[in-house]
């Protein structure tokens, strides 16, 4: 993702799932995230997010979601069980 995406993202952290390992905070190129007093990840500079996706891909606990600001709700059921099989068994 490029810099042109800056400011268009909404970053959500689910504190219940965050274990505060700090990977996202350390490697976030725009310093969007910080660890709070409880040791959990919080979003502090959302507008600086360049949508690189690092935090989402590297969160071992699936606790961070980055989505478009304008379209916060996507159809969640859409892709749950696509029946276009490829791969080994098919």
């Amino acid at each position: 993702m490029a810099k042109k995406d800056k400011g268009k993202s909404k970053v959500t952290v689910y504190p219940d799932w965050c274990k505060g390992c700090g990977i996202c905070v350390e490697f976030c190129p725009a310093k969007v995230l910080e660890l709070n007093a409880q040791g959990k990840c919080t979003v502090v500079r959302e507008e600086d997010c360049i949508r690189c996706g690092f935090c989402e891909l590297h969160c071992p606990d699936f606790a961070i979601v980055v989505r478009d600001k304008e379209f916060p709700q996507k159809d969640k059921s859409e892709n749950s069980d696509k029946k276009t099989a490829t791969g080994k068994g098919a």
Binding site: G53, E56, C59, V65, V66, K74, K76, E78, N79
Partner: peptide
């Protein structure tokens, strides 16, 4: 789909 990352995983 347009949804990426952890939203897929959650499903």
């Amino acid at each position: 789909s347009e949804i990426t990352g952890n939203e897929i995983i959650h499903q």
